[in-house]
Simulated scan of single mutants.
Amino acid sequence: MGSGLALAGEQPLGESASATVARLRDRIHGMQDGVARLPIATHPALADLVQLRTGGCYQVDSASLALALLAGPSQSGAWAAVVGADDFGAEAAAEMGVDLARTVLVPDPGELWLEVTSALVDVVTLVVLRPPEVVSARSASRVAARLRKRSAALVSWGPWPGAEATLSLRGSSWTGADHGHGRLRSRRVLVDVRRGAAPPRHAELWLPGQGEPIVRAEETAPPVLGEALA
Rank of each mutant, 00 (worst) to 15 (best):
M1E: 12
L7F: 12
P12S: 11
L13Q: 15
A17E: 14
T20A: 15
V21H: 10
R23Y: 00
R25I: 03
I28F: 09
H29I: 03
H29R: 11
M31Q: 15
A41W: 05
P44C: 12
L52R: 04
G55H: 02
Q59T: 08
D61Q: 08
S62H: 07
A63Q: 14
S64N: 11
L65G: 02
L69P: 00
A78M: 08
W79C: 03
A81Y: 02
A81W: 00
V82D: 04
A90W: 14
A94Q: 13
M96R: 15
L100D: 08
R102Q: 15
L105R: 12
P109A: 09
E111V: 10
L112N: 10
E115P: 05
V116N: 15
V116T: 15
V116I: 11
T117C: 14
S118H: 14
S118G: 12
D122L: 08
V127N: 02
P132R: 11
S139Y: 05
A140D: 01
S141N: 07
R142A: 04
V143N: 03
K149N: 07
R150M: 11
L154W: 02
S156N: 05
W160R: 01
A163S: 14
S172T: 13
W174A: 09
T175L: 09
G176Y: 09
A177P: 05
H179N: 13
G182K: 12
R183A: 08
S186M: 08
R187N: 12
V191W: 03
V193Y: 04
R195D: 04
G196W: 03
A198F: 08
A203N: 06
L205N: 03
W206Q: 01
P208I: 01
G209E: 00
Q210D: 10
P213S: 03
P223A: 11
E227T: 14
A230L: 15
